[in-house]
Every structure is written in structure tokens, then in C-alpha cells.
Design a protein around this nucleic acid. Structure first.
Lengths: 347, 347
DNA sequence: TTGTACGCGTTATCAT
DNA sequence: ATGATAACGCGTACAA
């Protein structure tokens, strides 16, 4: 199990009968390199033949950049979609020849500070800070010294670039879908947390109603904890109002799952008697429910990708020429499945 | 946004009025360092005060090891539990001062080979190769040159250490739980893939039946695709047999979700008329179902942790003194919820 | 007990 | 058109 015999730049130089300088110039395509085409070819060939690749540690030491990006993420494992942020960031990093190093942290501020320190000690060239649900954060102290982009989070002071989902537009699309199917009395099963998603989705709900000329009726909005059980309770409550809503927009797919149960208990068939739209597109739930759930997808992959691209754009630059801070909002597409039908008169 | 002014070992030396050698010796606790306790203290203090940490790039170059572990994982995002493997590996790495670098790959052999190359070029000290469901793999060529441990996968030739879940024992525990509640006629809703989980879970099912003196009845085992829909179909089929089973063991939680629907359609209440146990402990499903699902948890976190520990044990060693190849099987604990009740006579 | 100096593999500057 | 050589920051033989 001997470590692969490492072939260095001097091996290539010796083999190709040139100096290491020349090899370096040619392989790095430096503009001022003045070597004959014949030499270039020979050097490239021997490098390829020997399987030469530059030693990243030496390269980093010399260049004073590690070509590593730190991904600081809260509770990687908590949400099923977290992986898609990771994936988007990782693929984008790879395309740019960057390596992603991973640090998991928690919501505890002191933990986070400590983890930031650890990350900076690795001399990462930049940091992606991802929270696992959309919220406003105070960017850790230490990150002031390194290019940083926030994912699914916004800086309290707006000083750091960030990318978040367009909660309001996503919710509006969901409700519009119901309106387009003739629904007018649409309940909103929401949650009790004071987070951007709560406000954004409510705003979207109201916007679509307003667009359709349907007056807002606060008795149709009921909030519970954003779990299946909460969705069940909220749905029961709202379905008791009279006249009964013909459709429900739910804060997330888990609450929608609870709403399905409430509907079943009340003898209501989805979607014939009651249309339902969720949010999150947790596929295991959305596809597993019967009938499958129409919902709104969060752009996790795209956020990871955008953030990494943005970070890359910041890398070469310093102060003056750095791109301005940017706060981007990415669309949440509606995923149509089988839980929405044309509204019928209530029997 | 100037990069933090980097404090080096010479800064500490100057500040503490000693040589860099002394600083290095003291901070690295080298055995042959003979410095007065007073000096040690002073050096440590100034290092702390200056916020000194060794430059990893320089250190790596000198030591010829990067202190980075590559995690090569197939389709990070595919399964919700993938994150827990990651988490286990990452936490363990951090405890050892190691950094985890992440490469996502696919099941395509050529992609994998390419990604392995990329990883080795980063001079990682070791590699964790994780598949996202338990299966047998051919370890990529290039990994021969670097310490490697397999997670949730086994090497075809058994030459590489690996850790996998104890499918059979987990299934046996699930079925035993049903037996302990008085069930004798227990259906097994399984899947159609030829993977270790399929065989292991069937073996566990048979073992527990046999232990209870219940003859195996192949008409109670029905296989479909391992999705909710497949679970629904299989459950309908098996619940038609006569006498009807009083309990169902399902290959995974999604299939169990389908079984819930089948039960509802047949007017069977869970768990009063029908007990159900799943596998995987996908919390969103298991807790979201009503009643919540008793199931078996896969030890993802523990596998990530074990693998990293094992890898660390291999790191310092070479050929002779390397620990022997080991294939470990980790227990899958039963998670009791509300879907199992005492068997009743069938009305 | 401590300090000097070299080497790790690159890249960049300067000389030829 | 090409080559010698000085950094990059650290760890450690070896000299003192």
C-alpha cells in the first residue's frame, strides 16, 4: 500500500530536458512565457506521460491561496433538502477547480464562532455560510476577513451577499394555481414561527387573493406548529368554518400531510372535495401521499450554485474592485401533482 | 476586507524571546524537547495571545500529509439520511484535527474514477467511500494507493475495510416486536431489488419466525418496487390472503406508508386491526403518519463515525503494522412508536 | 537548553 | 527562448 510515487515538476523538467521554470511557465500558460511551440508540446507530452499534477500543498504555500472553500453549515442532517445545497455548491466548486471543505456547526453562537476559527485556520479562500432554513443571522465576527456568501440566510445588517428563496412568489404561485381552478374560499394553514418564510408565504397568499379580487378573511388563516400534527389540527379548525373552504394552502408538506388526515376524517376526498397545495417539495412526502401532493419547490440546489459562483467572483478581487454586496432571491417553482382539482359547489 | 494579518511562528518566537525551534517543539509537544516549564508556559501564552495557529499549507508541505480526508459519496442528495453519515464522519474528523473534503460522485464507474483522481490530487491522507444505500461495489482503481474505508458498502473482493448496517438483526428485531405482541400471521412487504438489504431483511424475518416456531409461508411475502405505491399494492395483495395477517413488516418506511393507505381502504385500523413495522426511520414519514410508525433505524451516524475512526487508525501506519482489514456490521435499533398493538382475533 | 539552516514543491523575478 | 534562484512557513537535524 505504498503511496503513489509522487512525480514532481523537476521530474518533468529532467525528462523533457528543460528547466523547471520552463515547465512551470508552459503548464501554467503564463503570458510572458516565451518557449517554442516544439518545446511546449514536448513538455506537455512528458507531463501527461508521467502523470504529473502539481502538488497542491506546495502550490498553495507559494500562491498564498488554498483553493479551498469552506462550507459552514448548520445542522447538515436536519433537513432532507440540505444535501441539495451542498450538491449545488460542490458541483460549482469542482467546475472551478476548487475543493469544498465541510464544517458542520449548530445554531449556538459560540459553537459557530469556534467553527469559524477552525475554518479560517485551514486558510480557506472563502466561506459559504448556510443555514438550514431561511432566516436572518448575525454573521460571525471572524468572517469579516474572508469573502463570504450566505445561503438561505440574510445578514442582519445587510453587509454580506446572500441568496434566499422567493417565499412570497412561491406562495403566490401556489394560491394562484388554486384560483385558476376556480377556488375562491382558500384556507391557509400556516406556522407559528417568526421567520421570513412565515411572513413571505402569507404575503404571497394575500397577494394572489387580492389579484383575484377575493377579500382576505382572517378566519381562514390558522397557525400551528409546523409539523404534521399541527397541520392536522389547523386543517380541522379551518374546515369547520362556514362555508367550508374548497382548498387549502399549507405552510409546508408536513402540515399538508396532517391536512390529508383531517380531510379523511371529515370524509372529504382530495382533490374532489378539497384541493391542497403544500410547500417544500419534500419528495418522500409529496410523492408518497395519496393523491400525490402539488407543492412548491425550494431552490436549494440553485442557491448552492449561485452562492458558490458569487463567491468565486469575489475571490480574485480586493476592496476596490470587489463586486458590490448583492441580495438575491431565487424563484420557487410550483410542482404540479394530483392534489388540485376544479372547485365544485359544496354539497 | 484585508485578509487577517497572519501571525507566524517567528512572530511568536520573537515575542516570547526564544527561537522558532523552541516554539515548534513546545507547541508540538515533541518528546525530546527539553525546555523549562517556565519557557513552555511563556511560549504557550504568547501563542495564545497572538492567536497563532500553524499555517496548514506550510505544515502539510513539510510533513507530507495534508490532514485532509476525502469523502467520496455517491449522490449526496438522494437519500435524506445521507447527511447523517456525513455528520458522523465530520464530527469524528474534527475531533482528530482532520478536515473533511467533499466530493460528490455518481454510480457511473468512469465518473467515480475521475473523482478519485481529483481527490488524490488534493493529497488527501485517506478516503471514505460512501454509497447511499447498502451495496457491493468494486473499489475504484486509484484508491489502492491510499488508506480507504467503505461506508454502507462492501468491497467485492473483501480487500477493503467496511462498515454496513446489520440488516438481518434489524429485521429480526422488528418481527420479534410483532411476535412479542402476539402476532403469528405476519406479512412481509419487500422489494424487488437484488441488494444486501433485501436478502438481509428477509433473513431476519425468517429467523424471528423460526425462533417463535411459526412456519414460513411464502404467500405472506410479496415484493414490489420499494416506493409508496409498491407498498400499497403489496399490502393489498397480502391482506387478501386468508386468514388475513394481523401484522405487516415493511421493507422500508415508504412502503409502510403505502400499507397504511391499503389498510385504510380496506377499513382496517392501525394498529387495532393491523400492526405495521417499517424500516429506515425516515422521521418525516415515520412521525408524520397517523398513528406514528414503529420502525428500525439505520445507523448512519454511527457508520460515518466508525469509518472515520478506522481510517484514522490506519493513517500513521504502513504495510506491516497496518491494522487488518475489517468488516463491521452495526446494529439497527428498533424505534417504537404507535403502529404496533397486541394481536386480536380476526372478526 | 537553544539557535541556525535546510528542505518540502511550486511559482515568480531576474538574468542570460 | 530559457535557466538559476529566492521566496512561501514550518519542522527538525545538527551545531553550539
Amino acid at each position: 500500500m505504498a503511496r503513489r510515487k509522487t512525480v514532481g515538476i523537476r521530474d518533468v523538467a529532467r525528462e523533457a530536458q528543460v528547466s523547471v521554470t520552463t515547465v512551470s511557465h508552459i503548464l501554467n500558460n503564463v503570458s510572458y512565457a516565451r518557449a517554442s511551440e516544439e518545446t511546449r508540446q514536448r513538455v506537455r507530452d512528458t507531463a501527461a506521460r508521467l502523470g504529473y499534477g502539481p502538488n497542491r500543498m506546495a502550490r498553495s504555500l507559494r500562491l498564498q491561496r488554498s483553493e479551498m472553500i469552506g462550507l459552514l453549515s448548520e445542522d447538515i442532517a436536519t433537513t432532507p433538502h440540505a444535501g441539495r445545497i451542498l450538491l449545488g455548491a460542490q458541483e460549482t466548486a469542482r467546475e472551478a477547480g476548487l475543493t469544498l471543505v465541510l464544517i458542520n456547526t449548530t445554531q449556538s453562537a459560540t459553537d459557530t464562532e469556534r467553527d469559524v476559527e477552525a475554518l479560517l485556520r485551514q486558510q480557506v479562500d472563502g466561506v459559504l455560510y448556510a443555514t438550514m432554513y431561511h432566516r436572518v443571522v448575525e454573521v460571525p465576527e471572524g468572517l469579516g476577513s474572508v469573502p463570504t456568501v450566505l445561503i438561505d440566510a440574510q445578514d442582519v445588517r445587510g453587509k454580506v451577499s446572500s441568496v434566499v428563496p422567493d417565499e412570497a412568489a412561491g406562495a403566490a404561485a401556489a394560491v394562484q394555481e388554486l384560483i385558476d381552478h376556480g377556488h375562491r374560499r382558500i384556507g391557509f394553514i400556516t406556522n407559528t414561527d417568526d421567520v421570513p418564510a412565515t411572513h413571505g408565504r402569507l404575503a404571497g397568499y394575500r397577494a394572489s387573493l387580492e389579484g383575484a379580487g377575493v377579500p382576505f378573511d382572517s378566519s381562514l388563516v390558522v397557525a400551528r406548529v409546523s409539523e404534521t400534527e399541527g397541520g392536522y389540527e389547523a386543517a380541522l379548525a379551518v374546515l369547520r368554518s362556514s362555508p367550508r373552504p374548497t382548498a387549502l394552502f399549507c405552510y409546508n408538506d408536513r402540515m399538508a400531510m396532517g391536512a390529508y388526515r383531517a380531510a379523511a376524517e371529515l370524509g372529504l376526498r382530495v382533490p374532489d372535495d378539497l384541493s391542497i397545495v403544500g410547500f417544500d417539495n419534500q419528495e418522500i412526502v409529496a410523492e408518497g401521499l395519496y393523491p400525490s401532493l402539488t407543492t412548491v419547490a425550494l431552490p436549494h440546489y440553485e442557491m448552492g450554485r449561485w452562492a458558490m459562483k458569487r463567491l468565486i467572483a469575489m475571490l480574485g478581487t480586493d476592496g476596490e474592485d470587489a463586486p458590490p454586496v448583492e441580495h438575491v432571491v431565487l424563484p420557487c417553482p410550483l410542482i404540479r401533482r394530483e392534489s388540485v382539482a376544479v372547485a365544485r359547489a359544496i354539497g
